[in-house]
Amino acid sequence: MSLLARRLFGVVPTLLGVVVVTFVLTRLLPGDPAAFFANSPTADAATIAAIRQKLGLDLPLWQQFLLYLGALLRGDLGQSIVTGQPVAADLLRLLPASAELTLAAFAMAVLVAVPLGMAAALRRGSLPDHLCRLLGTAGVSLPTFVSGLLLIHLFYYRFGIAPEPIGRIDPFAIPPPAMTGFFLADTLLAGDLRGFAAAARQIVLPAVTMALFAIAPLARVTRASMLGVLGSDFIRAARANGLRRRKIVLSYALRNALLPIVTTLGMIFSGMLGANVLVERVFAWPGVGSYALDALVGLDYAPVQGFVLVMAGLFIGVNLLVDLACAAIDPRARLLSDA
């Protein structure tokens, strides 16, 4: 596992860079949080100065940074001005909602795009092949929030088959007992099938919205990668040796085609983390994206910093996973066994 150790070690400078950048960025944002925090347009200069002092905003920037770093190391992400709660607690509370949405969208994208791309590569000129190309042109040109609003318009407003886009469950329903924080899993664990169906109905549209922009590139990469591998000498040799089609496609071709697919998966997942912010806003999804957006509008530094840090951590984690997956797929690197 030397690769894992090396990669984990390599993450440290990246994280430090992220911390610096988020710190500087939030300080560059317009507006004076102390004035905002005073929460009254008539607050006098003395009150504001007192608040500035209390928030440490009167200290030189480098001192503010060191204080910030020290707090971070203690797991203290600061206090949200808007909710009045510790940011770490807020994020932990809201993260499952975002994670459930992102994972659902990711699973949807993978389950549609990878088989579609494979089918397109195996039968050129067939229906899946045309679909692949159509998606490639249509899917990229539509921004996430437009497709989200479009879906709401069609399926909620026009056809009335989707529920109102007001979050994870009906506001009057009781959320399931929290075990995983994922409503889909929690309702099932509680044996609440009706609750599961309700949660599933709520998540479908936002998940589809997020999956839509990911399906096109993923299907395209899968198709291209499979085509490249299927045309190579060793596939012809495998056919010449009479190996069965199933074996050739799934074991010989797909495994070789997987490297670019996995890399794209990592990029798509990272992209979804970003798309979260808008999709959550459009569907009133109570996740970290909505939270961060509210904080940003409210000039609330700490939640924004916390959000960016969590996202950066996730980006780095995803990249790490992609690297490990590639090493596991491609034994040529011999990264996981001998050094």
């Binding site: 000498d233 060793f234 040799a237 495998a238 010989y252 070789n256 797929i329």
Partner: peptide, 12 residues
């Protein structure tokens, strides 16, 4: 086939 290495699955 000619080109013996290319005729083998590179990751098996």
């Amino acid at each position: 086939f000619q080109n013996p290495r290319a005729a083998l699955n590179p990751i098996r």
